[in-house]
Write a protein that binds this DNA or RNA. Structure first.
Lengths: 182, 182
DNA sequence: TGGGGAATTATGGGTGTCAATGGGAAATTA
DNA sequence: TAATTTCCCATTGACACCCATAATTCCCCA
């Protein structure tokens, strides 16, 4: 996977024309797609992929919200807008319900707001770097409305296992089905 | 076959008037049809067939979404709209469900947004070029709501085998039928 | 019906711009 | 003062944009 290559995440930075990306939100929906691997410098700074930045920069807080994944050695990340939507959804529950509690405790309490420096970089809190076991590179993995940040090798492994599991599953079928192939 | 000729995909462009493609049906539905073979220049650029471009250019992101095919040495491609529909469908699942995970990992993470340059060309990431074993030409193969990108010879081979299978099964069916009738 | 000629597409190449990255100085905090 | 964060500048390598040229196709008109 040159995608995981050290040198450059991949052509990714260029995959999306700069100008194009910004107007992408015109339709309202902007997705985080693809995987980018960037370096962590000795000050702990990481460039957020330009493509992701254009999505994040347009939101009410121009930065990233991050919190540890419950199930994997990875960091969940999204724009503030997504968290607000989640929160609004949860608020429909009784404020003292288990759902409300679980959400507040497991997401809100552990999440951090990270803003960009003038070059579009962020610094991950140590807790999170450790949770994901990252040393000197970080993989930004698009998941649609959100993305994750992984130690690149760990993600590789996880991805292979997922493929193994899903090889002949319905995922691929679904793509074809809706493709209106027949 | 003439369809696979190097020079020009074939007269296919004329099968369907250029303007016709985009407004196809007026119902909003536009299909990717036919096969076109174009060159890959030394910078890795490939012209997307004009006919496909008119469909893609009308979508919320004017470019192509590509990701490796699970089952073939080919690249799956579509417009952003198709991915958004898929994603929206998946979002109905619990964000931490296996379904969601498998989709995100196997499609979203491996996909790339490619925008057109001013001449309507794209540059495929190395990972994908390698996955499809492409060197200096690319075959764009219409599949309705989506299309695929192949190394032309590989597609030829695959196509012939498919035909052979189809013919064999038909023959065997006919044999069965007539055998039964007799 | 059969030319031209205009328009569109495919393709090649040069170059300015931007993303990613690294390092240092100023500002802030302990 | 030492340590950390913030801001600014420099470098490099891709790539986005520009222009030029073929190769077709489309369209109009004789």
């Amino acid at each position: 996977m040159s995608q995981m290559s050290p040198k450059r995440a991949d052509g990714s930075a260029s995959d999306l024309g700069t100008g194009t990306a910004s107007e992408f939100g015109g339709s309202g929906l902007a997705l985080f797609l693809s995987t980018f691997v960037n370096r962590i410098d000795r000050k702990g700074r990481i460039s957020v992929p330009a493509q992701f930045r254009t999505v994040l920069g347009a939101q009410s807080f121009p930065g990233v919200i991050v919190f540890p994944s419950f199930v994997a050695p990875a960091i969940e990340a999204s724009g503030i807008d997504h968290i607000e939507r989640l929160s609004a959804g949860i608020d429909q529950f009784d404020p003292f319900s288990d759902e409300h509690d679980a959400f507040a405790i497991s997401i809100l309490a552990d999440s951090h707001q990270l803003s960009f420096d003038s070059e579009g970089r962020i610094v991950l809190p140590d807790v999170l770097r450790e949770h994901a076991g990252m040393s000197d590179r970080a993989a930004f993995v698009g998941r649609g409305a959100t993305f994750q940040i992984w130690e690149p090798e760990a993600f590789r492994t996880c991805q292979e296992e997922a493929r193994k599991r899903a090889r002949d599953s319905r995922i691929s079928l679904r793509f074809r089905d809706s493709a209106g192939e027949r």
